[in-house]
């Protein structure tokens, strides 16, 4: 499973890396803004993308539009500090498949990824 993290905070990457050790997930890149994310999606075609809504430049929803246009099979999980539910629902409309509020903890993240990848238990080796 190849993952792209789109977030302007580097903490996010660390949290995800730390919590997804047990998953067979390879982080193929990290984008701090929309334009960079779109570029990476084009180049890498990741399976899973975590996407922040509030970012400098292109906002998350616009970025999601472009990602889905390029790579409709991508499983996009929105991870946002924004508590506005309408925005979250719009993201689902546009093709996002998961949703998570910041701040994220290990359990939430694991559950969210399980749901996103349709797994009930993380595969622990």
């Amino acid at each position: 499973m190849r993952l792209l993290i789109v977030d302007d905070s580097s903490i996010m990457r660390r949290i995800i890396e730390k919590n997804l050790k047990d998953y067979d997930i390879e982080i193929i890149g990290m984008a701090a803004d929309g334009d960079e994310a779109v570029k990476l999606v084009k180049g890498e075609m990741p399976d899973v993308i975590t996407l922040d809504i509030t970012m400098p430049g292109m906002d998350g929803l616009a970025c999601l539009d472009q990602i889905m246009a390029i790579h409709p099979a991508a499983k996009v999980m929105i991870i946002t500090a924004l508590s506005d539910k309408l925005t979250g629902l719009r993201a689902l409309d546009k093709g996002a498949r998961g949703f998570l509020y910041k701040p994220v903890n290990a359990k939430d993240l694991a559950n969210a990824f399980d749901r996103l990848l349709k797994r009930n238990k993380p595969t622990i080796e």
């Binding site: 539910k85 689902l92 409309d93 498949r97 998961g98």
Partner: peptide, 16 residues
Amino acid sequence: HLFNEDMDEDVVNQLN
């Protein structure tokens, strides 16, 4: 989204 079978119920319910 609630009636969309492809969408995970917990994910949707987060956005209630």
